[in-house]
Amino acid sequence: MKYPFKPKSTSYIEQGQFWAVPIGSDKFSAGVVLALRSSNGKTDSRAFLAGLLDWSGDTPPTKEELITCSVLHKGFAHIKTITETGGEILGKIDSSWDIPESVEYTDSILTWGYNSIVKKACKAFNSS
């Protein structure tokens, strides 16, 4: 896989891939693909399980900075959550979150709007 790339569907995204989440002027947090979403055994082409990592910085995240991060929030998200916020998948980290690569859709996990991850990151890291 060549990074960075802009996903158009879930066909090329994988668990552990991350993107920058802008949180104010010149600050960033990080989103991560936690799992693909399936329904009745079929992988969804647009939705996936996203996570907000406990990291923020003055530059977009790197693999080395995210290795030991934990997940602050998770929710089902549309692929536009990546393309409308950070824009591109920047790389991939090995996951240590004990989540399967594919999860079935369930009402017990919230479904986020495109900008929900930005709002959650701003709140977590006190950015406007």
Rank of each mutant, 00 (worst) to 15 (best):
M1V: 12
M1Q: 08
K2D: 15
Y3L: 12
Y3P: 08
Y3D: 09
K6P: 00
P7L: 08
K8H: 09
T10H: 11
Y12E: 09
E14K: 15
Q15I: 07
Q15N: 03
G16K: 05
G16V: 09
Q17K: 08
F18S: 00
A20G: 05
P22E: 03
P22D: 01
I23C: 02
D26F: 08
K27V: 15
K27W: 15
K27R: 15
F28K: 03
V32P: 00
V33A: 02
L34S: 04
L34R: 01
R37K: 15
S38W: 06
S39K: 08
N40K: 15
K42W: 09
K42I: 14
K42V: 15
K42N: 11
T43N: 10
D44E: 10
D44L: 09
S45G: 09
R46V: 09
A47V: 11
F48M: 03
A50S: 04
L53H: 00
L53S: 00
D54C: 03
D54F: 01
W55K: 02
S56Q: 12
S56P: 00
D58C: 11
D58N: 14
T59F: 06
P60W: 09
P60K: 05
K63R: 13
E64A: 13
L66M: 03
L66W: 04
T68F: 05
T68N: 11
S70D: 14
V71N: 01
V71Q: 02
L72D: 01
H73A: 04
G75D: 04
G75A: 05
F76M: 04
H78M: 08
I79K: 02
K80L: 13
T81N: 05
T83V: 07
E84G: 08
E84Y: 13
T85Q: 02
G86S: 09
G86E: 07
G86V: 10
G87W: 07
E88I: 10
E88L: 13
E88Y: 12
I89L: 06
K92Y: 07
K92W: 06
K92M: 13
I93A: 02
I93T: 00
D94G: 06
D94Y: 06
S95F: 04
S95C: 13
S96N: 10
W97M: 07
I99A: 00
I99S: 03
P100M: 06
E101Q: 12
S102D: 07
S102H: 05
S102K: 10
E104W: 12
T106V: 05
I109G: 01
T111R: 08
G113L: 14
G113K: 10
N115H: 13
S116C: 09
V118E: 06
V118S: 03
K120P: 00
C122G: 08
C122F: 07
K123I: 14
F125V: 12
F125G: 05
F125D: 09
F125Y: 11
N126F: 14
S127T: 15
S128M: 12
